[in-house]
Design a protein around this nucleic acid. Structure first.
Lengths: 186, 186
DNA sequence: CTTAACTTTCAGAAATTTCTGAAAATTGTA
DNA sequence: TACAATTTTCAGAAATTTCTGAAAGTTAAG
């Protein structure tokens, strides 16, 4: 479990960025390590490579499993648990995207939906309600869009992301061609 | 500065979600408050409404300004600084999106670019390099795509997000129509 | 220039999050 | 069943982040 200096830098950086991506430093490091290292790695190796306690590794692995970012394996004749990143870089990015949508959008949508149920009692509340409705509509749409993106297969997703300025042209094209809902819009 | 119970719930929730969205609790609350409250608000009012110290408000405002999420105003005959959310809900969402891209993607792209410059010294390093390249390619593409989305005008963005399953059909359409780069792909 | 109104700063306190390591629990083997 | 290998748990310690409030800084008006 000796890391090249490149790998080392990669791992440390993912640790630092971790909190911005939704996990803590050591979880970020563990994820990065399992991502660049294609061979399965066990908990002791992680603890040694990252210089963290065995207990911390155990908690981190649990969290990465909750994110569905790692997979458990077994080596014949070895009772230890071995882990690898769950799939290709592409698969991992997709999973992170989906999990983040769930964690960042869903709870808010649920709350806002609930707030919109209660009738405003006065002018003041009516004003708030209106803003809440706006926020809700936007986040709801964003959530649906994220969902649509998640469902695209790799080929289409790649095509879409590579469009660049072609995207607005394509959207234009759609209007002219008269997309299914083009004439339904209010 | 009395908040309706709806507004109150909204503000508290944004405080709790704050950390997942890239800012701390009180900054999240301040942002939420300025978002539902259309009238300009001054620092003392924020401190009172959120029950936090004046110093904390000052720091939070500074951070929200760094995010470009609030605007400074002045009331005639009043020396205090007043703030409002910077634009419509739509504008705000766009800004959050752009700022997050900058904070979450750019530093990593910079590091990976740098790691890719050094020649691998052995088989081990060559393996790491390969993975780093894959991660880089994906994040670079994602960054470009986010950039493209940021540049779309509101009309097109709305159209795109509302496509739903129509999106893959549209992409299909593009292939058949023979997009500019369709035959250039390796 | 002086003063009063207001804002910012920042050292230390408080709150929160993360980490350790020893003990408890689990699991496979004989 | 007994035991040794391994993993998980979790109380308290350590590290980090956030918050307070008093002092310093800034600015406009007289």
């Amino acid at each position: 479990m000796k890391l090249s200096s490149q790998a080392q830098a990669f791992v440390l950086h993912f640790g630092e960025m971790g909190s911005r991506w939704g996990f803590n430093r050591t979880v970020g490091q563990m994820f990065a390590l399992l991502t660049i290292h294609s061979e399965p790695v066990n908990a002791d190796q992680l603890a040694e490579a990252l210089k963290i306690s065995r207990g911390n590794v155990s908690m981190g692995l649990k969290e990465l499993q909750a994110w569905r970012l790692i997979e458990l394996h077994h080596q014949p004749g070895d009772r230890k648990d071995y882990f690898t990143a769950a799939g290709s870089i592409w698969d991992l990015a997709r999973t992170v995207f989906e999990e983040r949508r769930k964690r960042e959008l869903d709870p808010t949508l649920t709350l806002l939906r609930q707030l919109l149920l209660t009738e405003p009692r006065d002018e003041q509340e009516s004003e708030s309600q209106k803003k809440i409705q706006e926020v809700y509509s936007l986040l709801e749409m964003l959530d649906q869009f994220a969902n649509t993106l998640s469902k695209l297969d790799e080929k289409d997703l790649l095509k879409l992301m590579k469009l660049g300025s072609g995207l607005s042209k394509l959207l234009e094209l759609k209007s002219r061609a008269g997309g299914k809902k083009a004439d339904t819009k209010k």
